[in-house]
Write a protein that binds this DNA or RNA. Structure first.
Length: 902
RNA sequence: GCGGAGAUUGCCGAGCUAGGAAAAGGCGAUGGAUUUAGGGUCCAUUUCCGCAGGGAUUCGUGGGUUCAAAUCCCACUCUCCGCACCA
């Protein structure tokens, strides 16, 4: 469709408000949602899949008679918008370039600088991109009810979020506790992936070390280890002679570690105090006691110790660490390996050093260490380890760690998995927050309710049900508030902002009564919990409110009761273990019955030209660009028919061109269409039956959300059938006339613009196809006999072709002998067993062909006779058809005529 | 590590949760048609054998169940994805 036509329908749909439904208790409702977009930029080809699927479902449900609510809002919570705005203020070149590229698509060059300037205020970014996204969505023909739009930053909505947290708190699901996070000391703030340099490409996570204390006469050394179970194999300690070491006092003990270790430790434990610097010479001069043992070990200098990793002190276990072992050998240190882990296979420090010749090939060191580590962890047993001997490494590690902690012989020491700095260059470490707020998803009653819910919901595709149940089991405590970012203040502690995923777990309910809630908020400047308890839970209102408030509350309650229960939510796989899990858990915690979620559709990833969509690959294609270059219908067709919903969809030129080809074949037909005469010729009757069979398949597939299959039936198959009409010498206009209205209706969910345009041109200029319903009772419009006839004809053609293929003669003529009375009589009499004598000679031939004979007999002679011209032109042969009147050695059977070519 | 998904004919990709098709569809390739010049459209072919519609061998590897398995069961090999404050 030309852009101007799509724009025309976009505007006329909006003007006529046909997608803004009212509650109507006489009609069944269907409430479908997709995640609200985050407004820090414009959307690209990948984002559109979920939204397009949402619109297809919404339009389809409308078509089949439901009162459909398909709303949309915008997510503004969290840190990214703030971070981007800040980076723009700081003049970050990459960020400026990024936003210039967004703006250059939508704005005139002279306006860009002014708008960019306005982005120094974060709210302007959110406002700008929500406008842009609305425009894109309208251009794509989405049948969204924009009258219910709101954002997560809207004050009325924040009242709902607070209410939600209050509900969770009343159910005992809000907790406080300590929690390790990535942190920047200089910025005095938590950092997320977005704040870390290369954080999106090279992920930083938190690793838990055991900081083991080795007691000396004056102080203890703390060595950080990932393998506390090797403590019985310690032969010495390593420190880096050129690093700085400090002493801190913690729980009455003097502990020494590297300066950087001290800094981290003090961010992870409360009451850590600096005492003095300690020169490395002083440390090396002393001996220290190994935990659980009376033995003392010395401290050796080693340059390989990194003072910025862990505590800058490591204990040496040459029996189980390749690094230590090699360092021993290189420096001629007396080798007194202690073995504390036994494995069955011949994998050990010595064997690996030999196998990879590690003394010379240091590049294999890491791999070899991994190999050893794995082998010992999974197959190792502790030996020479006191009362831990005999335990598996896996169990022993936990037990030893626990005992050391209980006896104040070790403390947890968190470290990042790689060295990281923020985008502004300050160091990222792990800090422990002692008063972090959590939602506790672990109570048994909640898990049970959630599983019950998951098992009662519909899943498309079904395999995600299991994944969802696993995610429910896996959820424990979820930190639910942060110290910064856009969002709602935690009602019990206003210093905290509710974390951005936790504020969006039940938000879809506000679509049902957004306008009433907003009115109440505007009127009272708040929405009291009592009012929300009434609207959302049906509890009695105890406090006294004025009539305006109560009237809106009653209306809001009615809207909520009619609409709620999110019948289908459509989203993508990365949401399963977070957003969707919370969505399910929070609903299970607060709601019950029909207000619980009804179904989930999870669509697969979209890639672009064979690669993951990313700026660095240069394959980001914005939705606007697509609309401009290809048209909305083509994008929608590709999204729907390009791949099954669960599988990966690759946006690429090649597949696109075949979609465009089919689409223009379609528009060519409809542009040229003018209603033909009524005609009930064989081929038109056939087409009509074939069409309704396709429509039946379409409906069945749509009902089970097999969107791709349904469109293959109604789009591709119908067009192939039209070709078949032509090759029979038929006329497309005549064939289409009786089915065109239904065809356009069925196509309207996926290519609404074309469907709307042709509906107005060819069917009815005074109504919208987008607002029609379709008659689902179609079985009586399918004549299965005629479908069988056509099927038979095609089988005859392919049989003849097969013969032509292998006989190398110059064929002129085919004689087709179809079954006659004799064969018919035989087939009727044979099952009874009392055949006349003359028929008995047929038994052998019958047995040979038994499996290929049609059980239902059709009038093959007439079918071929009526379509002789078609056969002749397809095969380029003269065709003669005769009906068998005798018993032969080789007989024609129903569905298996005899063919003779000469 | 935990959890999950998958290995199909040149390629991509259905079918595999009701076991009975050399296995949909697309792309590519080959041949043909079209007012006959190779990028358009249409038709046919595309595992192997076959001068009559037939036969043989295929769906990661190796076993098993069954009259019958790409489809069910077991083992093995390999590949991919998610994992918490990030929206």
């Amino acid at each position: 469709m030309e852009r101007s036509i799509e724009e025309k329908w976009r505007d006329r749909w909006a003007e006529s408000h046909i997608f803004e439904p009212a509650a109507d208790t006489t009609r069944e409702k269907f409430f479908v949602t997709v995640p609200w977009p985050y407004t820090n930029g414009s959307l690209h080809v990948g984002h559109g899949r979920t939204y397009t699927l949402g619109d297809i479902v919404a339009r389809y449900k409308r078509l089949t008679g439901y009162n459909v609510l398909f709303p949309m809002g915008f997510h503004e919570s969290g840190t990214p918008i703030l971070a981007f705005s800040e980076r723009l203020r700081n003049g970050d070149k990459d960020t400026i370039r990024l936003y210039m590229s967004y703006l250059s698509e939508y704005e005139k060059p002279e306006d860009i600088d002014r708008i960019l300037e306005s982005f120094r205020e974060p709210q302007n970014i959110a406002d700008y991109f929500s406008r842009v996204i609305i425009k894109d969505f309208m251009d794509l023909g989405y049948s969204i009810d924009w009258s219910r739009k709101f954002t997560s930053a809207d004050p009325f909505y924040q009242e709902v979020v607070k209410w939600q947290f209050n509900q969770l708190n009343e159910k005992g699901l809000i907790k406080r506790g300590s929690y390790p996070i990535l942190y920047s000391i200089r910025d005095e703030n938590a950092v997320g992936e977005d704040d870390i340099k290369d954080g999106d490409t090279d992920k930083v996570s938190i690793e838990e070390f055991t900081g083991v204390l080795f007691r000396g006469e004056k102080y203890s050394l703390m060595a950080a280890s990932l393998r506390p179970e090797t403590i019985f194999g310690v032969t010495n300690l390593w420190i880096n002679p050129s690093a700085g070491y400090e002493m801190v006092r913690y729980r009455g003990m003097d502990i020494v570690m590297s300066s950087s270790g001290c800094k981290k430790f003090s961010m992870q434990h409360e009451g850590v105090q600096y005492v003095r610097d300690v020169p490395s010479d002083e440390i090396v001069a002393s001996e220290f006691q190994v935990p659980f043992s009376s033995e003392k070990v010395g401290v050796l200098n080693a340059e390989f110790v990194d003072p910025d990793n862990g505590t800058g002190i490591v204990y040496s276990v040459p029996g189980h660490s390749i690094f230590d072992y090699i360092y021993y050998n290189k420096n001629g240190i007396k080798n007194n390996l202690k073995k504390v882990v036994k494995v069955d296979r011949n994998v050990s420090v010595e064997s690996l050093v030999e196998k990879y010749d590690l003394e010379k090939n240091s590049e294999r060191l890491k791999d070899a260490t991994q190999e050893l580590y794995k082998e010992e962890f999974y197959n190792g047993t502790l030996i020479n380890s006191g009362r831990y001997s005999g335990m598996s490494v896996e169990a022993g590690r936990e037990a030893i760690k626990r005992e050391m902690q209980e006896k104040n012989l070790a403390y947890i020491f968190y470290e990042t998995t790689r060295k990281a700095v923020t985008r502004s260059g300050s160091e990222v470490i792990v800090a422990v927050l002692n008063d972090q707020w959590f939602i506790d998803y672990s109570p048994e009653w909640l898990k049970e309710k959630a599983h019950e819910l998951v098992n009662s919901m519909k899943f498309y595709p079904e395999l995600y049900r299991k994944l969802m149940n696993d995610a429910v089991d896996w959820l424990k405590e979820r930190p639910c508030a942060r110290r910064r970012g856009i969002g709602t203040k935690l009602p019990f502690d206003e210093r905290w902002v509710i974390e951005s995923l936790s504020d969006s777990t039940i938000y879809m309910l506000a679509y049902t009564n957004k306008n009433e809630l907003e009115s109440i908020y505007a009127h009272l400047k708040k929405i009291p919990y009592g009012i929300l308890d009434y609207i959302l839970l049906g509890k009695e209102v105890r406090e006294k409110y004025d009539e305006y408030t109560m009237e809106n509350a009653r209306k809001a309650r009615d809207e909520f009761r009619y609409w709620y229960g999110n019948d289908l939510r459509i989203t993508a796989p990365p949401h399963i273990s977070n957003h969707l899990a919370f969505y399910i858990m929070n609903h299970a915690a607060i709601f019950s019955g029909k207000e619980l979620p009804g179904g989930l559709m999870i669509s697969g990833l979209v890639i672009s030209n064979g690669a993951k969509i990313s700026k660095s690959k240069g394959n980001v294609i914005s939705l606007l660009e697509i609309i401009k270059h290809y048209s909305a219908d083509i994008y929608r067709l590709f999204m729907a028919a390009g791949a099954d919903i669960s599988s990966l969809l690759d946006w690429n030129e090649k597949d696109l061109s075949s979609v465009i080809k089919r689409y223009s074949y379609f528009t060519d037909i409809l542009d040229a269409y003018s209603p033909g005469d009524d005609d009930s010729n064989y081929i038109y009757s056939w087409f009509k039956s074939a069409f309704y069979r396709n429509l039946k398949t379409y409906i069945a597939d749509m009902e089970s959300m097999n969107i791709r299959d349904s469109y293959i039936a109604i789009f591709y198959n119908v067009m192939n059938d039209l070709r078949n009409v032509e090759s029979h010498g038929g006329n497309i206009n005549i064939a289409l006339k009786p089915v065109l209205a239904d065809w356009l209706k069925a196509l309207s969910p996926i290519i609404p613009f074309a469907a709307e345009e042709y509906w107005h041109r060819h069917i009815d200029n005074n109504s919208f196809v987008s607002a029609q319903t379709i008659d689902m009772n179609i079985d009586n419009r399918i004549d299965y006999n005629i479908l069988k006839s056509e099927n038979y004809l095609n089988r005859v053609i392919s049989d003849i072709r097969e013969i032509l293929k292998i006989i190398h003669i110059d064929a002129k003529k085919a004689t087709i002998t179809v079954y006659g009375q004799k064969q018919k009589t035989f087939l009727e009499e044979y099952p009874g067993g009392n055949l006349d004598r003359e028929y008995r000679t047929m038994i052998g031939d019958y047995m040979k062909n038994k499996n290929r004979i049609d059980t239902e007999m059709i009038d093959e002679y007439s079918i071929i006779e009526a379509n002789r011209k078609y056969l002749e032109s397809s095969l380029k042969l003269d065709i003669t058809v005769v009906k068998s009147d005798s018993i032969q050695k080789k007989n024609p059977w129903p569905g298996r005529p005899l063919i003779e070519i000469s």
